[in-house]
Design a binder for these strands. Structure first.
Lengths: 181, 181, 181, 181
DNA sequence: CATGAATGAGCTTTCATTCAT
DNA sequence: CATGAATGAAAGCTCATTCAT
């Protein structure tokens, strides 16, 4: 990918996250990326297509990560590893998580990325379920839904509800819950 | 409140929920409410102020409901009652919950309603905590955060992540968790 | 004239002078005069007609003053008296003079008040000329034009060109010029 | 400067002069300049900025003219030359002078161009004073103010007060006054 | 006399997109 | 690859005026 194109993607990600897709204009992106309008339209069909490419890149990363050989650890350890990975990302890339939530709840962007959103959800769900399958085949579906809801709820509250969220304390509680599951 | 004004609020609520704040134009609202632009600006200072009024109305309803005399039931019963109330609303007023999430994750609308969002969060938190205080004064803060995260996570997954979400099954699991807490 | 009507005229004069005719809305006038829209339109046919009435009132005052019995003083004394009257008004009612200049140079308002402006100019010219006639019948026309130009130029420079205008010094010079004319 | 941009400036100058700044809409300018709205906003930040650019261009021309080497003629000749230059412009570019007066007396436009108006006034004053300095250092300030007031007053009366103004006769009188000063 | 709800045309400005160079 | 002039639709908002009460 050309330097300029990846610069555009990087700038667009930042601006979409900070101001929302609707409140970021192509001119904003041009200015910040030091690129002309013509060039953006040389690389991308439309503003939507920038969003799609950003989202797709992340989805592909997720797929890649997921296709890694399954850990042979105990399922409880796997869950704790997953929790720790997610919380670590959450803390270090708030803006990116906010962008994802923003996209998912804006009706317009949601529709644009409907398929990808569903694909990602399925990916995560299956990944989690494959762990819980090792604990209880009968209950793995329910347990997966609950696990994902817990994680998403914490993220939502941390990012957008409470001003001073005791993320560490809650993470610890979650880890404890699944340690002796 | 005049007929026309409340019609505008009602139409705006619907359109904001369906299409998002940014993707709903004043003209859209006029058309749907059968009202002229001038009239909207006679009743509301700006498009923002419509959003604020919608949000404030709901906040005030929440405050009112919250000021009702405390139930004398066991805290476990109170929690279950709360869960059932929220899930019932969730199912019957999807659009309204979607609007709230949409507002909270759009940077622009989020900023407009920052104070109100915080006020609501505090309200809900205190309400939940006053129940958990009756169970364990020492752990009530942590338990409240977790309870709220669970509810929010389920709502988020139900509304915007999974296509076919087994809401009833999950609600049942949640009720069971808190029944014998 | 009703209290409310004269309040409207007074407020409109102030706002037109401060912000210009085009930048004063009927709503502004209503707010400042504590009067409803309906009432303004009960007393005045339109926004223009308020302006016309303001201007006409002043013109009529000028006519009245002018119809006073001619002074029997020496023409030089009469000129000096005129100069002193005008300079005194200029200093004590800056806003009002500014309004007049504003009206005369705004193409739209100028057209609305074309006739009145011309009537006033003729009135002033004849008044001045009748003094100079007593000095030199042959040159009175030219002298009148020059006298009026001097006065208007000073007013213009005082009101709208120079930041710190030595009005007194210039007035003195003018008085000296005409004292021994 | 691009063809289209200078066309916009030219058309805007004409329309502002004819109808006033407030009564000239961007759509008017577009129509007359055969240009799209988008293009105007590509070249100018706002309607105000068009006005500023028009005014600045003229100010810069004035500065340039003023920086020409001083004439070595007698000061009386210099004054007469100045009078003749101004009167000639006045006759040949009425619309332009009207625009300037219009701008100076409209509160809104006046504020926008406050600095420039003051800069111009200082420029003219210093230019005139440097001539009178050669006649009487002690009285040059007063004489300059009077000279400028005479010129401005005549312009004002010619352009906006009297219907049939004997400009030539008055110019002659002025020239005579300063010829033997 | 008095109110203020209601209208609709028109305002300035923004923006995704196209295209000649 | 790269520029930026150019478009035109649509946005939020203002305002003089009307009219039922």
């Amino acid at each position: 990918m050309s330097d300029k194109k990846s610069k555009v993607l990087q700038v667009a990600t930042k601006l979409f996250a900070e101001n929302g897709f609707e409140n970021t204009s192509m001119a904003n992106i041009c200015d910040e990326a030091n690129v002309s309008k013509g060039l953006i339209y040389h690389h991308f069909k439309s503003k939507e297509s920038i969003l799609i490419e950003i989202f797709t890149n992340v989805t592909n990363q997720m797929i890649e990560m997921n296709s890694a050989p399954k850990s042979s650890q105990k399922p409880q350890r796997q869950l704790i590893h997953l929790i720790e990975t997610i919380f670590s990302q959450l803390e270090h890339d708030k803006l990116f998580f906010q962008l994802n939530l923003n996209i998912m709840f804006q009706p317009i962007t949601r529709q644009i990325l409907k398929e990808q959103i569903e694909k990602r959800a399925a990916l995560l769900f299956n990944s989690v379920k494959s762990i819980f399958d090792q604990i209880s085949l009968k209950e793995s579906t329910l347990l997966s839904y609950i696990f994902i809801a817990e994680i998403d709820g914490i993220a939502l509250n941390y990012l957008s509800v409470f001003n001073e969220y005791p993320l560490d304390m809650i993470k610890e509680a979650l880890v404890n819950k699944y340690k002796h599951f």
